[in-house]
Amino acid sequence: MTLRREAFLRHVQERGQYDTAAEAERVARVVLALLGAHLVGEVRAQLAARLPEGFALILLNPLQSVEPLPPERFVRATGAWIEGATEQTAAWDVSAVLSTVADTAGDDLLEQILLQLPAGYDLLFGQPQPTRP
């Protein structure tokens, strides 16, 4: 199910408690560009198919990541791309966008997404996973 752009941004705006949709969009663009650099193949294509078109294109044409960033570096990288961000606000921004992405993706796709990412991303998506023995 593809979420409409306005609905997607409204979710991000509510979760991030942003004053404007423009602020939510700016954050969503940065986080999705960085996320796209970490996902490959069918998983990235399936997620893009569920996102509003403009955001799908950002996910599919990412900055290339040399290696997958651990969650804390992903947050720092997000902060580096958002003017005036601190590590705390960047963590908030990442959480607002990725929790919306998790809802949009659904459980099965989210599980596949998390398999492509380093350990700890489940928390960024707001979906803590039970630790494996």
Rank of each mutant, 00 (worst) to 15 (best):
Q112M: 12
L63F: 04
S95Q: 12
E83T: 15
A22F: 09
L35F: 03
A96I: 08
T86I: 10
V97A: 08
S65C: 11
E25I: 10
R26F: 04
A105R: 04
L9I: 08
V27M: 05
G16T: 04
A49Y: 04
T104A: 03
R132V: 13
L114F: 03
A105C: 04
A56H: 00
F125W: 04
Q116F: 09
G106I: 05
T104Y: 04
V31E: 09
L117G: 00
L98Q: 02
Q46W: 01
V30P: 03
Q17M: 12
A102E: 15
E25M: 11
A77C: 07
L110W: 00
D108E: 14
L32A: 02
E14A: 12
P70A: 14
P130L: 10
P52G: 06
P71V: 02
V30I: 14
A102W: 12
A102C: 11
A119R: 15
F55L: 14
L69Y: 05
L109P: 00
L115K: 15
G106V: 05
L110C: 05
Q64F: 15
P70I: 15
T20R: 10
R50F: 09
G54C: 07
Q112E: 08
G106H: 05
R73V: 05
L60F: 09
Q112G: 03
Y121F: 14
S95T: 12
F55K: 07
A80C: 07
A102L: 12
R10K: 14
A102K: 00
V40D: 02
E87R: 08
A85S: 13
Y18H: 13
L47C: 02
V27R: 04
W92N: 02
